[in-house]
Nucleic acid binder design. Sequence first.
RNA 1: UCCUCGAUAGCUCAGUCGGUAGAGCAGGUGACUGUUAAUCACCGGGUCGUAGGUUCAAGUCCUACUCGAGGAGCCA
Length: 466
Amino acid sequence: MQVASVKQVLAGGIPTGSKVEVRGWVRTRRDSKAGISFVQLSDGSCQGTLQVVAPNTLPNYQTEVLRLTAGASAIARGTLVQSQGKGQALEIQADAIVVCGLVDDPETYPIQPKEHSLEFLREQAHLRPRTNTFGAVARIRHTAMCAIHDFFTQEGFVWVNTPIVTTSDAEGAGQLFRVSTLDVHNLPRDDRGKIDWKQDFFGRETFLTVSGQLNVEAYCLALSKVYTFGPTFRAENSNTTRHLAEFWMIEPEIAFADLKDNADLAERFLKHIFRAVLRERRDDLQFCDDRLQKGVIARLEKFLDASFERVDYGDAIGMLQKSGRKFDYAPQWGMDLQTEHERCLCEDLFGRPVVVMNYPEAIKAFYMRSNEDGRTVAAMDVLAPGIGEIIGGSQREERLPVLDARMKKMGLVPEHYGWYRDLRRYGSVPHAGFGLGFERLLVYICGLSNIRDAIPYPRAPGSAAF
RNA sequence: UCCUCGAUAGCUCAGUCGGUAGAGCAGGUGACUGUUAAUCACCGGGUCGUAGGUUCAAGUCCUACUCGAGGAGCCA
């Protein structure tokens, strides 16, 4: 007997009249006095469920089938037929139902056939993948991940796996998670009473990565087109709907390229992903559109048709000033864009994603390339409606004297960046790259309102359950 | 970390002026039915987040704490 997924069956991949076996978890059971029960089965292969018709002549009908409740697992074997009822095209007339696992206390099984709040489901992280919402998000997440690798492969990129354990804060900002095997109750001390990191596992202080960028630049200046895609850790005490302590980041880096090439890449990249999820996850997106946020499909389709809006930082400040809107912080050249400014730009003034380019030097990282005007750097942020900053990137400073001067200006010691400076000494070329928070992308695609619902097991300050 | 709001049945919520708790869904039982978030009837289900305080009396007022949500900062 052929084993089939619910997706295969619903897609018409199995001829009616044939014997099939379907395995999954019960969503609901309805009993009819006609001597049959209807069991709605889901196996996570798609948004839909399959109706299994169980006659009371099954040997385990009284003892097991009637005890199936939401969440129970079962294997159904029978004939695939045109449904005799309304509401679905196909159903399985069961010859046998094997109950794998009943729900031992149906009253307290948290996932019920009704709408649950996302906050409640967050506390049920091990069971929430059984809901339509988290099934959809999980499948879209997978498709988006594959699409990212597809895109880079097609464009000739090489995926570079930068280290998770690192020795310094790549960007000179952000709180790091310490990695240590020292006994925290009995730390070794040196002569001056300071912690003796030489005795730690790596012989020095180590942390979880906050970015693979610096490491991947070395591979960029050898393989020309590279990207990282892996987990990233930030210990910032950020309690918002768009921050995680552990998230997945994509960081492409391209050689012989400037900021414009970088923005072009970001646009092609996002469009490729959106095209893939629209093509391969239409039913899941439709669910998101119906239940999470109206219009997510139209938003993605519009994204594919229109080009990114590009605006110079200085012009953006001017537009904000002329907009006549009241801001808590008045827009002013030299200050970073506040969340309220970013929202105004992409949601009100442009109504679509915006690339803001060429920020003041003082508010950006040391590795970003100085522009000719002497006061801005070749940095860019891609702002998306509803989320704000989704991509941050820049052209990198490839001129060693300029890089050294910039580091000193920012209080950094060039000698601490020996290998990074080497890249500018040995065959330096203009290069650029950006970082994309994968979960932020999912929030945008699915129309989620909290990033903690975009990752299976969210890690945030004070929260690492499951 | 700061600001605001919240915590009542397994879930979603109501609870008036302070007078010792309600509904829907879910669960159980029964009726009915090729059903489909079925429908109808009945039943069980609560230390009102925790600890104090005010009061004859606290779900309700006050204080602290815990947890959650939204916003801000930081960022992807």
